Simulated scan of single mutants.
Amino acid sequence: MKVLMAGGGTAGHINPGLAIANYLKQKHPDAQIKFVGTERGLETRLVTREGYELELIKVRGFKRKLSFDTIIAIKELFQGMVEARKIIKRYKPDIVIGTGGYVCGPVLFNAAMMKIPTLIHEQNAYPGVTNKILSRYADAVAISFKESEKYFKSAKKIALTGNPVRDEILHTDKVSARKRLGISSNSRVVVVVGGSRGAQNINNSVVDMLKKYYNSNDFNIIFATGEAQYDRTMESLGKDIAPTVEVVPYIYNAADVYAAADLMVCRAGAITLSELTAMGIPAILIPSPFVTANHQEYNARSLEKNGAAVVILEKELSGNVLYNQIMSLLKNREQLSRMASNSKKMGITNATEKIYSMIREVMKQKGKL
Protein backbone atom coordinates (compact mmCIF):
# COMPACT_ATOMS: atom_id res chain seq x y z
CA MET A 1 0.00 0.00 0.00
CA LYS A 2 1.36 3.41 -1.04
CA VAL A 3 -0.18 6.38 0.76
CA LEU A 4 0.33 10.08 0.12
CA MET A 5 -0.68 12.34 3.03
CA ALA A 6 -1.24 16.08 2.54
CA GLY A 7 -1.72 18.40 5.49
CA GLY A 8 0.14 21.28 6.98
CA GLY A 9 0.50 24.61 8.64
CA THR A 10 -0.62 23.92 12.20
CA ALA A 11 -0.34 20.93 14.51
CA GLY A 12 -4.14 20.65 14.32
CA HIS A 13 -3.81 19.60 10.68
CA ILE A 14 -0.59 17.61 10.97
CA ASN A 15 -1.18 15.47 14.08
CA PRO A 16 -4.35 13.83 12.70
CA GLY A 17 -2.37 12.94 9.58
CA LEU A 18 0.37 11.41 11.70
CA ALA A 19 -2.18 9.46 13.75
CA ILE A 20 -3.72 8.05 10.56
CA ALA A 21 -0.26 7.22 9.16
CA ASN A 22 0.79 5.45 12.37
CA TYR A 23 -2.42 3.40 12.41
CA LEU A 24 -1.91 2.41 8.78
CA LYS A 25 1.60 1.29 9.67
CA GLN A 26 0.19 -0.89 12.46
CA LYS A 27 -2.27 -2.49 10.07
CA HIS A 28 0.15 -2.69 7.12
CA PRO A 29 3.77 -2.76 8.34
CA ASP A 30 5.03 -2.79 4.75
CA ALA A 31 3.00 0.30 3.78
CA GLN A 32 4.89 3.17 2.15
CA ILE A 33 3.73 6.56 3.47
CA LYS A 34 4.90 9.96 2.28
CA PHE A 35 3.76 13.44 3.36
CA VAL A 36 3.46 16.62 1.31
CA GLY A 37 3.71 20.02 3.00
CA THR A 38 5.18 23.50 2.68
CA GLU A 39 8.37 24.93 4.10
CA ARG A 40 6.45 27.44 6.25
CA GLY A 41 4.39 24.91 8.20
CA LEU A 42 5.09 22.91 11.37
CA GLU A 43 5.19 19.76 9.25
CA THR A 44 8.89 20.37 8.57
CA ARG A 45 9.46 19.51 12.24
CA LEU A 46 6.59 17.24 13.24
CA VAL A 47 6.53 14.91 10.24
CA THR A 48 10.26 14.33 10.00
CA ARG A 49 10.46 13.75 13.77
CA GLU A 50 8.05 10.82 13.31
CA GLY A 51 10.35 9.35 10.68
CA TYR A 52 8.20 9.95 7.60
CA GLU A 53 9.48 11.34 4.31
CA LEU A 54 8.26 14.85 3.54
CA GLU A 55 8.17 16.57 0.15
CA LEU A 56 7.57 20.32 -0.09
CA ILE A 57 5.56 22.33 -2.60
CA LYS A 58 4.83 26.03 -3.00
CA VAL A 59 1.37 27.18 -1.96
CA ARG A 60 -0.05 29.80 0.38
CA GLY A 61 -3.42 31.12 1.47
CA PHE A 62 -5.29 33.92 -0.24
CA LYS A 63 -5.96 37.13 1.68
CA ARG A 64 -9.44 38.59 1.40
CA LYS A 65 -8.19 41.96 0.12
CA LEU A 66 -6.58 42.27 -3.30
CA SER A 67 -2.89 43.05 -2.86
CA PHE A 68 0.58 42.12 -4.08
CA ASP A 69 0.36 39.09 -1.76
CA THR A 70 -2.67 37.90 -3.77
CA ILE A 71 -0.59 37.91 -6.96
CA ILE A 72 2.14 35.90 -5.21
CA ALA A 73 -0.48 33.47 -3.87
CA ILE A 74 -1.90 32.90 -7.37
CA LYS A 75 1.58 32.35 -8.78
CA GLU A 76 2.45 29.87 -6.01
CA LEU A 77 -0.87 28.05 -6.46
CA PHE A 78 -0.06 27.32 -10.11
CA GLN A 79 3.48 26.35 -9.14
CA GLY A 80 2.12 24.09 -6.40
CA MET A 81 -0.30 22.44 -8.82
CA VAL A 82 2.58 21.53 -11.13
CA GLU A 83 4.80 20.34 -8.27
CA ALA A 84 2.00 18.25 -6.71
CA ARG A 85 1.23 16.58 -10.03
CA LYS A 86 4.90 15.67 -10.48
CA ILE A 87 5.04 14.13 -7.00
CA ILE A 88 1.90 12.07 -7.61
CA LYS A 89 3.08 10.84 -11.03
CA ARG A 90 6.47 9.88 -9.62
CA TYR A 91 5.20 8.29 -6.37
CA LYS A 92 2.10 6.58 -7.83
CA PRO A 93 0.07 6.40 -4.57
CA ASP A 94 -2.83 3.99 -4.06
CA ILE A 95 -4.68 6.65 -2.07
CA VAL A 96 -4.23 10.33 -1.23
CA ILE A 97 -5.45 11.62 2.16
CA GLY A 98 -5.82 15.30 3.07
CA THR A 99 -6.05 16.55 6.65
CA GLY A 100 -6.35 20.29 6.05
CA GLY A 101 -4.28 23.33 5.23
CA TYR A 102 -3.61 25.05 1.90
CA VAL A 103 -1.23 22.31 0.79
CA CYS A 104 -4.20 19.94 0.41
CA GLY A 105 -5.60 21.95 -2.51
CA PRO A 106 -3.04 21.13 -5.23
CA VAL A 107 -2.40 17.59 -3.97
CA LEU A 108 -5.99 16.36 -3.55
CA PHE A 109 -7.30 18.12 -6.66
CA ASN A 110 -4.58 16.61 -8.85
CA ALA A 111 -5.16 13.15 -7.34
CA ALA A 112 -8.92 13.38 -7.95
CA MET A 113 -8.38 14.46 -11.57
CA MET A 114 -6.01 11.49 -12.01
CA LYS A 115 -8.74 9.11 -10.70
CA ILE A 116 -6.69 8.16 -7.63
CA PRO A 117 -8.76 7.36 -4.48
CA THR A 118 -9.01 10.46 -2.25
CA LEU A 119 -10.23 11.11 1.29
CA ILE A 120 -10.47 14.34 3.29
CA HIS A 121 -10.46 14.54 7.08
CA GLU A 122 -11.98 17.71 8.55
CA GLN A 123 -11.16 18.42 12.20
CA ASN A 124 -13.40 21.42 12.93
CA ALA A 125 -17.10 22.13 13.26
CA TYR A 126 -16.71 24.90 10.67
CA PRO A 127 -14.57 23.52 7.85
CA GLY A 128 -11.76 25.35 6.12
CA VAL A 129 -12.36 26.77 2.65
CA THR A 130 -9.87 24.36 1.05
CA ASN A 131 -11.71 21.29 2.33
CA LYS A 132 -15.09 22.71 1.34
CA ILE A 133 -13.88 23.13 -2.24
CA LEU A 134 -12.11 19.77 -2.33
CA SER A 135 -15.18 17.91 -1.03
CA ARG A 136 -16.74 18.25 -4.51
CA TYR A 137 -13.93 16.17 -5.99
CA ALA A 138 -12.83 13.79 -3.22
CA ASP A 139 -14.27 10.29 -2.93
CA ALA A 140 -15.07 10.64 0.78
CA VAL A 141 -15.10 13.18 3.61
CA ALA A 142 -14.54 12.22 7.26
CA ILE A 143 -15.92 14.79 9.71
CA SER A 144 -15.30 15.28 13.42
CA PHE A 145 -18.38 17.33 14.39
CA LYS A 146 -21.93 16.57 13.26
CA GLU A 147 -22.41 20.31 12.74
CA SER A 148 -19.96 20.38 9.81
CA GLU A 149 -22.03 17.98 7.68
CA LYS A 150 -24.19 20.80 6.27
CA TYR A 151 -21.12 22.42 4.71
CA PHE A 152 -20.34 19.35 2.59
CA LYS A 153 -23.56 19.00 0.61
CA SER A 154 -21.63 18.20 -2.59
CA ALA A 155 -19.62 15.36 -1.02
CA LYS A 156 -19.98 11.90 -2.61
CA LYS A 157 -19.72 10.21 0.79
CA ILE A 158 -19.55 11.67 4.27
CA ALA A 159 -19.14 9.97 7.66
CA LEU A 160 -18.74 11.13 11.26
CA THR A 161 -15.44 9.67 12.47
CA GLY A 162 -14.20 12.19 15.04
CA ASN A 163 -10.60 13.28 15.49
CA PRO A 164 -7.82 10.78 16.22
CA VAL A 165 -6.87 10.87 19.91
CA ARG A 166 -3.47 9.95 21.37
CA ASP A 167 -3.29 6.47 22.93
CA GLU A 168 -2.07 7.78 26.28
CA ILE A 169 -5.18 9.97 26.55
CA LEU A 170 -7.39 6.91 26.18
CA HIS A 171 -5.60 4.82 28.81
CA THR A 172 -5.38 7.27 31.74
CA ASP A 173 -7.84 7.61 34.64
CA LYS A 174 -8.25 10.23 37.36
CA VAL A 175 -7.25 8.05 40.33
CA SER A 176 -3.97 6.79 38.90
CA ALA A 177 -3.17 10.17 37.33
CA ARG A 178 -3.55 11.95 40.68
CA LYS A 179 -1.37 9.35 42.38
CA ARG A 180 1.39 9.93 39.84
CA LEU A 181 1.08 13.70 40.24
CA GLY A 182 0.88 13.59 44.03
CA ILE A 183 -2.52 15.29 44.13
CA SER A 184 -4.99 14.44 46.90
CA SER A 185 -8.20 12.71 45.87
CA ASN A 186 -10.12 15.35 47.87
CA SER A 187 -8.63 18.35 46.06
CA ARG A 188 -10.58 20.29 43.50
CA VAL A 189 -8.26 20.77 40.52
CA VAL A 190 -8.60 23.32 37.73
CA VAL A 191 -6.20 23.17 34.77
CA VAL A 192 -5.71 26.30 32.66
CA VAL A 193 -3.91 26.09 29.34
CA GLY A 194 -3.94 28.47 26.39
CA GLY A 195 -1.88 26.40 23.97
CA SER A 196 1.82 25.68 23.41
CA ARG A 197 2.59 29.33 22.66
CA GLY A 198 0.24 30.60 25.32
CA ALA A 199 -2.67 33.03 25.06
CA GLN A 200 -1.87 36.46 26.42
CA ASN A 201 -5.44 37.48 27.26
CA ILE A 202 -6.08 34.22 29.11
CA ASN A 203 -2.78 34.59 30.99
CA ASN A 204 -3.59 38.18 31.94
CA SER A 205 -7.02 37.16 33.22
CA VAL A 206 -5.60 34.28 35.28
CA VAL A 207 -2.97 36.59 36.80
CA ASP A 208 -5.72 39.10 37.64
CA MET A 209 -7.85 36.30 39.15
CA LEU A 210 -5.01 34.94 41.28
CA LYS A 211 -4.00 38.37 42.59
CA LYS A 212 -7.46 39.80 43.30
CA TYR A 213 -10.01 37.03 43.87
CA TYR A 214 -8.36 33.66 44.50
CA ASN A 215 -8.01 32.07 47.95
CA SER A 216 -5.79 29.02 48.37
CA ASN A 217 -8.68 27.00 49.80
CA ASP A 218 -10.83 27.65 46.72
CA PHE A 219 -9.20 25.04 44.46
CA ASN A 220 -5.83 23.80 43.23
CA ILE A 221 -4.74 25.23 39.91
CA ILE A 222 -2.24 24.04 37.32
CA PHE A 223 -1.57 26.98 35.02
CA ALA A 224 0.35 26.53 31.76
CA THR A 225 1.40 29.91 30.41
CA GLY A 226 3.01 28.85 27.14
CA GLU A 227 6.80 28.83 26.88
CA ALA A 228 7.06 32.24 25.21
CA GLN A 229 5.01 33.94 27.96
CA TYR A 230 6.24 32.15 31.06
CA ASP A 231 8.81 34.71 32.28
CA ARG A 232 6.51 37.67 31.72
CA THR A 233 3.62 35.91 33.49
CA MET A 234 5.77 34.94 36.47
CA GLU A 235 6.99 38.54 36.74
CA SER A 236 3.37 39.75 36.76
CA LEU A 237 2.41 37.24 39.47
CA GLY A 238 5.27 38.25 41.75
CA LYS A 239 6.76 36.11 44.50
CA ASP A 240 3.71 35.49 46.66
CA ILE A 241 2.24 32.52 44.81
CA ALA A 242 0.03 30.23 46.89
CA PRO A 243 1.24 26.62 47.36
CA THR A 244 -1.99 25.45 45.70
CA VAL A 245 -0.94 27.19 42.46
CA GLU A 246 1.47 25.49 40.07
CA VAL A 247 2.67 27.62 37.16
CA VAL A 248 4.47 25.88 34.30
CA PRO A 249 5.51 26.97 30.82
CA TYR A 250 4.17 23.84 29.15
CA ILE A 251 2.37 20.62 30.15
CA TYR A 252 4.42 17.70 28.87
CA ASN A 253 2.47 15.00 30.75
CA ALA A 254 -0.86 16.16 29.34
CA ALA A 255 -2.64 12.81 29.76
CA ASP A 256 -2.08 12.75 33.53
CA VAL A 257 -2.73 16.46 34.08
CA TYR A 258 -5.94 16.46 32.05
CA ALA A 259 -7.19 13.28 33.75
CA ALA A 260 -6.52 14.81 37.18
CA ALA A 261 -8.64 17.88 36.39
CA ASP A 262 -12.13 18.48 37.71
CA LEU A 263 -12.41 21.34 35.26
CA MET A 264 -10.40 22.56 32.27
CA VAL A 265 -10.05 26.15 31.09
CA CYS A 266 -8.71 26.20 27.55
CA ARG A 267 -8.99 27.21 23.92
CA ALA A 268 -11.35 25.35 21.57
CA GLY A 269 -9.00 23.77 19.06
CA ALA A 270 -10.48 20.64 17.50
CA ILE A 271 -7.85 18.21 18.80
CA THR A 272 -8.01 19.64 22.34
CA LEU A 273 -11.78 19.21 22.40
CA SER A 274 -11.53 15.68 21.04
CA GLU A 275 -9.18 14.81 23.90
CA LEU A 276 -11.42 16.46 26.51
CA THR A 277 -14.53 14.64 25.31
CA ALA A 278 -12.67 11.32 25.04
CA MET A 279 -11.80 11.72 28.74
CA GLY A 280 -15.14 13.24 29.76
CA ILE A 281 -13.73 16.47 31.23
CA PRO A 282 -16.01 19.49 31.84
CA ALA A 283 -14.58 22.69 30.39
CA ILE A 284 -14.72 26.45 30.29
CA LEU A 285 -13.85 27.22 26.68
CA ILE A 286 -12.36 30.51 25.55
CA PRO A 287 -12.22 30.24 21.74
CA SER A 288 -9.42 32.10 20.01
CA PRO A 289 -10.77 35.04 17.98
CA PHE A 290 -7.61 35.03 15.84
CA VAL A 291 -8.25 31.83 13.84
CA THR A 292 -9.56 31.46 10.31
CA ALA A 293 -13.35 31.91 9.96
CA ASN A 294 -13.68 31.97 13.77
CA HIS A 295 -13.80 28.15 13.67
CA GLN A 296 -12.92 27.74 17.36
CA GLU A 297 -16.16 29.38 18.43
CA TYR A 298 -18.09 26.93 16.24
CA ASN A 299 -16.21 24.07 17.95
CA ALA A 300 -16.90 25.51 21.41
CA ARG A 301 -20.60 26.11 20.74
CA SER A 302 -20.97 22.47 19.73
CA LEU A 303 -19.87 21.36 23.22
CA GLU A 304 -21.92 24.08 24.89
CA LYS A 305 -25.04 23.03 22.98
CA ASN A 306 -24.55 19.47 24.21
CA GLY A 307 -24.11 20.57 27.83
CA ALA A 308 -20.43 19.61 28.01
CA ALA A 309 -18.89 23.08 28.36
CA VAL A 310 -19.44 26.75 29.15
CA VAL A 311 -18.18 29.32 26.64
CA ILE A 312 -16.61 32.67 27.54
CA LEU A 313 -15.75 34.85 24.55
CA GLU A 314 -12.38 36.53 24.84
CA LYS A 315 -13.92 40.02 24.60
CA GLU A 316 -15.93 39.17 27.76
CA LEU A 317 -13.00 37.65 29.65
CA SER A 318 -11.57 39.12 32.85
CA GLY A 319 -10.15 37.82 36.12
CA ASN A 320 -13.48 38.40 37.85
CA VAL A 321 -15.56 36.70 35.13
CA LEU A 322 -13.24 33.70 35.05
CA TYR A 323 -13.15 33.30 38.83
CA ASN A 324 -16.92 33.54 39.19
CA GLN A 325 -17.50 30.98 36.45
CA ILE A 326 -14.98 28.52 37.92
CA MET A 327 -16.44 28.84 41.42
CA SER A 328 -20.00 28.54 40.13
CA LEU A 329 -19.21 25.22 38.48
CA LEU A 330 -17.09 23.82 41.32
CA LYS A 331 -19.82 24.59 43.86
CA ASN A 332 -22.45 22.84 41.77
CA ARG A 333 -21.23 19.23 41.80
CA GLU A 334 -24.39 18.01 40.11
CA GLN A 335 -23.91 20.34 37.14
CA LEU A 336 -20.21 19.46 36.92
CA SER A 337 -21.03 15.75 36.95
CA ARG A 338 -23.67 16.27 34.27
CA MET A 339 -21.17 18.19 32.11
CA ALA A 340 -18.63 15.39 32.51
CA SER A 341 -21.22 12.81 31.44
CA ASN A 342 -22.29 14.91 28.44
CA SER A 343 -18.67 15.41 27.44
CA LYS A 344 -18.02 11.67 27.59
CA LYS A 345 -21.08 11.00 25.42
CA MET A 346 -19.64 13.29 22.75
CA GLY A 347 -16.23 11.61 22.87
CA ILE A 348 -15.15 9.40 19.98
CA THR A 349 -12.34 7.06 20.96
CA ASN A 350 -12.09 4.98 17.80
CA ALA A 351 -11.73 7.73 15.20
CA THR A 352 -8.62 6.25 13.60
CA GLU A 353 -10.33 2.89 13.15
CA LYS A 354 -13.33 4.58 11.51
CA ILE A 355 -11.08 6.56 9.17
CA TYR A 356 -9.20 3.37 8.31
CA SER A 357 -12.50 1.69 7.36
CA MET A 358 -13.30 4.61 5.07
CA ILE A 359 -9.85 4.37 3.47
CA ARG A 360 -10.39 0.68 2.71
CA GLU A 361 -13.88 1.32 1.33
CA VAL A 362 -12.66 4.08 -1.00
CA MET A 363 -9.75 1.97 -2.21
CA LYS A 364 -12.04 -1.01 -2.88
CA GLN A 365 -14.39 1.16 -4.92
CA LYS A 366 -11.48 2.25 -7.10
CA GLY A 367 -10.04 -1.26 -7.39
CA LYS A 368 -6.96 -0.57 -5.26
CA LEU A 369 -7.66 -3.36 -2.74
Rank of each mutant, 00 (worst) to 15 (best):
T225F: 03
G198C: 03
G226C: 04
V175N: 02
E227S: 12
G182V: 10
G238F: 07
V206K: 00
D231H: 11
S236V: 00
K239F: 05
K212L: 12
V245C: 06
Y230R: 06
R188I: 06
F223G: 09
Y213W: 13
L210G: 10
N201A: 03
M234G: 06
V192M: 13
T244G: 04
L181T: 12
E246Q: 15
Y213V: 09
V191R: 11
K179C: 04
T225R: 04
N201D: 04
S236N: 12
V193F: 15
K174E: 12
A177L: 08
S185L: 15
E227I: 10
A177I: 08
A199R: 00
I251C: 03
V248L: 10
L210N: 10
E235W: 04
G194S: 07
S185I: 15
A228D: 11
N215C: 08
F219E: 02
N215Q: 13
V189E: 02
N201Q: 13
R232W: 08
L237E: 02
D208F: 10
D218L: 03
N186L: 15
M234R: 13
S176C: 02
D173K: 02
I251D: 02
T233I: 15
D218P: 10
K174A: 09
S187R: 07
V207A: 14
I202P: 09
V190D: 03
K174R: 14
D208K: 13
N220M: 13
D173H: 01
L181W: 10
L181S: 11
N253S: 13
V193D: 05
S205G: 09
K179N: 13
F219N: 03
E235R: 12
Q200Y: 01
V175E: 13
S196D: 07
G226M: 06
N201W: 00
D173V: 06
E227M: 01
V190G: 10
P243I: 06
K179W: 05
N203Q: 04
R180N: 14
I183K: 01
L181E: 09
T244R: 05
V192R: 05
R178S: 07
M209T: 12
T233R: 01
N186Y: 15
V192G: 11
I241A: 00
R232M: 12
K211M: 14
E227D: 10
A177D: 09
D173T: 09
V245R: 01
R180G: 14
A242C: 08
V193H: 01
K212M: 10
R232Q: 15
I222G: 08
T244Q: 09
V207S: 04
R188C: 06
K239E: 12
R197E: 00
N201R: 14
N217W: 01
R180M: 11
A199K: 00
I202Y: 01
A242F: 14
R178T: 08
S236L: 15
G182C: 12
G226H: 05
V248D: 02
R232T: 13
S176I: 07
V206I: 15
D208W: 10
V193T: 15
V175W: 02
R197H: 05
D218T: 04
G194W: 02
G198S: 09
S216Q: 14
Y214Q: 06
K212Q: 12
